[in-house]
Design a protein around this nucleic acid. Structure first.
Length: 555
RNA sequence: GGGCGCGUAGCUCAGCCGGUAGAGCAAUGCCCUUUUAAGGCAUGGGUCGCAGGUUCGAAUCCUGCCGCGCUCACCA
């Protein structure tokens, strides 16, 4: 390594040059980052160089971390308002602007140069000329790096090549980027890095930004819809002593002062219905649920759910409401009710409604014999025969446990036979009572309940039912769930929520309720194939140093 | 958890019939006052994910592990 011998050759006037010798010294004084993190996406040499530049910038009289910068325009606004103005129109009268942004490209040309400033997700070119910004301004200009934040004052003009540009008269330093941004052309493509360092992903990839802007519009549109339909938005506990309202394994946490184990909620359902008992006839909540289960392109351990409840209504009312809601959201968010997803055109204004049994009949494979009749769903024996016919004709075989109740097998049969075909928006209704412990039974068929699920693009993205409001039947169904759980059914509920039964005992009006997965809905409306693409910070294993690295640090 | 794939410079990627590493961008120095993937000249930068093994010799072959992706299972 070249050491102190190199130092004298560096021109004394350009003190931001870093010699190897200086770098060696700097390493004795390592930044916390390099002690705390793996080398992933860290470049220590550049980091130290830029610290030196930051000191130089301060020496020029700029503050390293100023508190604010007053702008007159947003970059997207300038682009929208002036993109069609000619050079002449921009020259008289001059359009004075003060803008701020992150430098995304620099083109130095002797005593002048260009840069692109990015702000509000868009880029505008600036032109810096020594004659106009003066000697100190130009010294600052030469100390800037890609990734730095600056503010500029100047006026709009068009270059010879016609590019709308800010002719800079004053440069203000705002914040230093000490770590190099990814390459300007390919950006950041490594999927793991994109998730781990979403902040860099957002800087580099405009489409990613668009996805999350659109996600925000989805939620706004939903709120507008429910607010206009007489609902109030509420927030119910995320930490619950009993994890109820769904069948899923919960996360456990602990409250120290109360010395109390709590569960992160798997659903808000039982609390929202308590509110309906209390006279809040129309409530909705948009918030996180937590399920301690597998991770996949459709499952994140924490996910966002819309749940809403409407008194004096049944599941038929919610079918109508759902179609209206999702058509509105799709239109407000994308500009059309028709979206492309996974190679399909999906029309959120064009729904089909099928009962679960109809769906099995409709999509029954040709080679599995005659289509099932309604009476084939009537008993466990008949349903078992259907499964055997299906499995004889179809691979992979669907799992089948003859000791399961018929309803559970029918639901599994539906998943195997029909689910993948439900690309266009579908309301799939009438579910087996056996898998629906919180739903009200159909009047004419006690083995079936008034429940529906929403399928779009092959994704299950909603679940709704007429709410069971008979406290004694609810208690029996809870107890039945607990018995199933004790028999080893991990999906069954673990504990009876007696307070919920008590609440129902005060009388809940006839009520229908529904949950819609915001993440999956956003996937559909943004063309995202993975749920991680619509969650800003999906759960990943933490970065960990290897044992060798730990040893080095310990020295 | 099973199967398949990936992991090389800050980023994007070559190299992978074993002979101790390359390109572009980014960075550093010099030139350049309307460029836009600016350009020209020069320079620095790598525990080839980690740990073992085979070999005279491993980024390359083998095994284990770690991380990520896809997929199946799981998961209303």
């Amino acid at each position: 390594m070249a050491a102190a011998g190199d130092a004298p050759r560096q021109p004394a006037t350009q003190t931001w040059q870093i010699t190897n010798y200086q770098l060696q010294i700097a390493r004795y004084n390592r930044c916390f980052l390099f002690k705390a993190l793996t080398p992933m996406a860290l470049d220590e040499n550049i980091y130290q160089l830029r610290r030196q530049k930051l000191a130089q910038i301060e020496a020029l009289g700029q503050r390293a971390y100023p508190h604010k910068y007053q702008t007159t325009h947003e970059i997207p606004q300038i682009l929208a308002d002036y993109k069609d103005r000619t050079a002449e129109q921009l020259g008289d009268p001059k359009v004075e602007v003060r803008i701020a942004g992150r430098i995304m490209a620099i083109r130095l040309m002797g005593k002048a140069g260009f840069a692109h400033l990015q702000q509000g997700g868009q880029r505008l070119q600036i032109y810096v000329k020594k004659d106009d910004v003066g000697e100190p301004g130009f010294q600052l200009w030469k100390l800037l790096d890609i990734g730095d934040h600056i503010g500029v004052r100047g006026y709009l003009f068009r270059t010879r090549t016609g590019a709308l540009t800010v002719h800079v008269q004053e440069l203000t330093f705002l914040s230093k980027d000490l770590l190099p941004l990814p390459e300007k052309w390919h950006g950041l493509t490594d999927v793991e890095l994109r998730y781990r360092q979403r902040y860099v992903d957002l800087v580099m990839n405009a489409e990613v930004r668009d996805v999350f802007v659109r996600r925000s519009k989805v939620v706004q549109s939903i709120r507008r819809f429910f607010d206009a339909h007489g609902y109030i938005e509420v927030e119910t506990p995320m930490m619950q002593p009993i994890a109820g309202g769904a069948a899923a394994r919960p996360f456990i946490t602990h409250h120290n002062t109360l010395d109390l184990d709590l569960y992160l909620r798997i659903a808000p359902e039982l609390y929202l219905k308590r509110l309906v008992v209390g006279g809040l006839d129309r409530v909705y909540e948009i918030n996180r649920n937590f399920r301690n289960e597998g991770i996949s392109t459709q499952h994140n351990p924490e996910f966002t759910m819309l749940e809403f409840y409407q008194a004096y209504s049944d599941y038929r009312d919610l079918m109508d409401l759902t179609e209206e809601l999702l058509a509105q959201v799709a239109h407000e968010v994308t500009g059309s009710t028709v979206v492309r997803y996974g190679g399909h055109e999906i029309d959120f204004a064009n729904w089909q409604r099928l009962s679960m049994r109809e769906a099995i009949q409709k999509y029954w494979p040709e080679n599995a014999g005659p289509k099932p009749q309604m009476r084939d769903f009537a008993s466990a024996e008949c349903v078992g025969a259907l499964v055997r016919r299906f499995n004889a004709a179809h691979h992979p075989h669907m799992p089948y446990d003859p000791t399961d109740p018929a309803g559970k097998t029918i639901a599994a049969l539906f998943e195997a036979v029909a689910e993948e075909h439900l690309i266009q928006p579908t309301i799939l209704y009438d579910f087996p009572a056996a898998i629906s412990p919180l739903s009200k039974k159909k009047q004419d068929e006690p083995e079936w309940v008034e429940r529906f699920e929403i399928f779009i693009g092959g994704l299950e993205c909603g679940n709704a039912f007429s709410e069971l409001n008979d406290p004694e039947e609810q208690l029996r169904r809870f107890e039945d769930q607990v018995r199933q759980r004790q028999r080893g059914d991990e999906e069954a509920m673990a504990e009876v929520d007696y307070d919920y039964v008590r609440a129902l005992s005060y009388g809940m009006p006839p009520t229908a309720g529904e949950g819609i997965g915001i993440d999956r809905l956003t996937m559909l409306l943004t063309g995202s194939p993975s749920i991680r693409d619509v969650i800003l910070f999906p759960l990943l294993r933490p970065e960990r140093k290897t044992a060798a690295e730990e040893d080095t640090e310990a020295e």
